[in-house]
Design a protein around this nucleic acid. Structure first.
Length: 149
DNA sequence: TAGGCCATCTGGTCCT
DNA sequence: AGGACCAGATGGCCTA
């Protein structure tokens, strides 16, 4: 947990307003008190929400490659790394599938000499290989990856 | 000391 | 009305 930043609502309703005359001066009416209570409740909810978010970031950090660096990834870096990692895995899966079936696929189509399909396939293949997006798919060198969990 | 990162507060908006 | 979500502001901690 981070340091006691603004301590307005840590514990009591309001450290500026611990009952008595100060409260009356600050929140002259019950409506104001109710609004203050709601604000504090909202602060607490927001804190819990952000803590949940941070827990999710921690879980993500554990499954994302760290490149062996000891320093914890920032939130931004974690998201970037997760994106690259997913892209890399997707690419690996796609390639694995292609290499395991390509021969059969070509044989099948050559057998019946379905020329149109073959050309379509070759065009698609070229597109993938020339696609700048596919080139970007994995911007981090895979050999630097180190699974940390 | 400056800059990066983060936690927290806060007010606004949208939804139930 | 109240909760969830979001973005801006603020200030603390850490590192180069």
């Amino acid at each position: 947990m981070k340091s006691s930043k603004s301590n307005v609502d840590s514990g009591e309703l309001d450290t500026h307003c611990k009952g008595g005359t100060g409260c009356v001066a600050k929140y002259g009416s019950e409506r104001m008190e109710s609004a203050a209570k709601r604000r504090l409740a909202a602060n607490a909810r927001e804190r819990r929400r952000m803590q949940g978010l941070n827990t999710a970031f921690d879980r993500l950090r554990k499954v994302v490659p760290q490149w062996g660096q000891d320093k914890k990834l920032s939130k931004y870096e974690t998201l970037q790394m997760a994106l690259s990692y997913i892209m890399a895995l997707t690419r690996i899966l796609a390639e694995a599938e292609r290499y395991s079936t390509e021969k059969d696929w070509i044989n099948l189509h050559c057998e019946h000499f379905h020329q149109e399909s073959y050309h379509t396939y070759m065009e698609q293949k070229m597109e993938i290989e020339n696609d700048p997006y596919a080139q970007r798919i994995f911007s981090y060198p895979p050999d630097h990856f180190q699974i940390t969990n």
